[in-house]
Nucleic acid binder design. Structure first.
Lengths: 338, 338
DNA sequence: CAGGTTGATGTAACTAGTTACATGATTCAA
DNA sequence: TTGAATCATGTAACTAGTTACATCAACCTG
């Protein structure tokens, strides 16, 4: 029946009244406890407890102009590579006292814009996006809001947003180079959808069949274990035999490996296999998957530092190039000459 | 040199002055455009564009008392089972116009409290946690803030927070029951750390060796592919032979499968294998992994509806029990009698 | 043409914090 | 004992929106 029970939630004024002090004193107890006399502080703290007072984040934000969180737009959470990226991102953002809001785009630029709008609506101070191909409305939104935004998983110093990522062309070049160096000339390339995906397209562009005197056959499929299985079936059924399979993602490679096992095709004895990503599973599969390690953890940390710095200093950070490197395990083997 | 360039960001008053209207009119253009005359609206919209005005989320939140996002505390993102859960959670929250803030706890109750505090600080309207074992400080925080909180991956109607999850005991019971039904009496159980993990402990409690006249050997390891590999090595090296391996997680089972392949132990011919989770990889591995499907996507959706409803109506939702079911694939086989 | 209704817009008071400045009370040295 | 310095606290004005209510003009009806 008292006032306290009618009110939904106690505020600073309620606490001040209850403790018999001013709002400024309560605010001080919250933000600079040393500035108030212990006796007063105790009175206030007691009032805070009895009224179950919890300061409003919104009211704080309105004064500081800070909401203390940034948004990340990722294509999916279902690929361990993004999970690893997000884990590192979230962890490093915490060092800057920033939280992470995650949104899935399902690789759809339209969904991406919608979610970006939502993120702005709830007050994101910065954005992390994947790649450099987006709906113009997203660029417009970023521009209008002057929103610090980092484009990841891609490297392009000339892009209008700073990129933090690796050179996708170099990654596939590194892979093809290795297989060609092992003597492979007939290679199947398994890749994800090209639509709306500049990362995949860049990886395609990184392949230089002529320079390696290699014949490439391309198999497009969804980036998932099942996609890899399907691609492997198609490869086995194709008229032209290959000696090696290059997958643009370790998830695909794992699916391929399973499907080959199912068909009693031995890796690497009958067919060589190489991936890109370097997931946890790749290190421990049998055989171990030779792949190109993408430094996504470092990408997460670097991106976190980049947005945080941008937000703090208002100065746009420089693009960062992270270098992928080969990790050799047992899945390919050299072709015997002749 | 003008005022506009000195000010960091335009606000409602600036727009109103620039358009020669009152703040109320600008606010109406934003929230109820039909209530203002088209001519006035255009004036305001033009001012909004030229001043690059973006409404402050914080100021909105302060009036509505809503921040429109909830926080999720998950042990890790590195396990596909959580990724799937979060994807469903995020997707369904969007239907309630809520965003998702993700925080990693690394299975550490102390980190969990810290991150929960951060989430409250930035204004989360609700919380999603894993399991029912938490630092008392977390319960205190939830209680003090009257924060709608759902405990997931667990079922306990008597818990002080509503749970949305499956019966972990039933899940392992289902698995052991299947293996025993196939005639297995010597079984290795591979599980994650018991410390701070009520889900794992409940799964342990679900095993009834006596009822199944079975001998169980336990192998504790980290929940990761590598953990599975190590457990498999230990199992192969153990003095007492087993005919089946039961893993409390498909991630572990996959590691076990790889390690067995490495040691030329055939599954299921030489050794039967069963998991719990039902990941994408489990459906397509060779052999396919017989497992217990945990309905984490539905858990995500149900949790989203539960918090959203709680926030909306102020009424605590009822706990929800989701039923796991077996999915039979090729990894175990019946023991020949004798 | 008076009177009522409707529609568009403005005024000012809210929301819940922070903070510059003012005030008043001690404390200490001269 | 006086004056200055220091400390604790209060007042009121900010932050950037929303919104109840007031105002006023235009339109319609009798």
């Amino acid at each position: 029946m008292t006032d306290d029970q009618n009110k939904k939630r106690a505020n600073l004024r309620d606490v001040a009244k209850s403790a018999g002090v001013s709002v400024a004193t309560v605010s001080r107890v919250l933000n600079a406890p040393d500035a108030v006399r212990p006796k007063t502080r105790e009175k206030v703290e007691s009032a805070i407890r009895t009224l179950r007072f919890v300061p409003s984040a919104a009211a704080r934000a309105i004064n500081s102009g800070r909401t203390r969180f940034v948004g990340a737009l990722v294509p999916t959470l279902d690929n361990a590579i993004f999970a690893r990226f997000l884990a590192a991102l979230e962890h490093k953002l915490l060092d800057h006292r920033l939280s992470l809001v995650v949104a899935n785009t399902y690789n759809d630029p339209a969904i991406e814009v919608e979610k970006a709008k939502t993120l702005v609506d709830v007050g994101a101070e910065g954005l992390i996006v994947s790649g450099i191909t987006h709906d113009p409305a997203l660029d417009d939104l970023i521009e209008r809001c002057q929103l610090p935004t980092i484009a990841t998983s891609y490297h392009d110093p000339s892009y209008h947003l700073p990129t933090v990522g690796y050179d996708n062309m170099a990654a596939t070049a590194l892979a093809l180079d290795y297989l060609a160096g092992q003597g492979h000339r007939d290679i199947a390339v398994v890749h994800g959808p090209l639509a709306n995906n500049d990362r995949t397209r860049a990886r395609m562009a990184g392949l230089d069949p002529v320079g390696h005197a290699a014949q490439l056959q391309f198999f497009e499929t969804e980036i998932a274990i099942l996609g890899g299985c399907r691609a492997a079936s198609a490869i086995l059924a194709a008229p032209r035999r290959v000696s090696a399979i290059l997958c643009f993602s370790d998830v695909l490679a794992l699916g391929v490996l399973f499907e080959l096992q199912r068909n009693a095709v031995r890796v690497p004895d009958d067919l060589s296999l190489m991936g890109i990503d370097d997931l946890a599973a790749s290190a421990h599969s049998e055989p171990g998957l030779t792949t190109v390690h993408l430094p996504v953890s470092r990408m997460g940390e670097t991106s976190a530092n980049a947005v945080a710095g941008w937000i703090e200093t208002q100065e746009r950070p420089a693009p960062v190039l992270l270098v992928p490197d080969r990790v050799i395990r047992g899945s390919p083997r050299a072709v015997e000459p002749g």
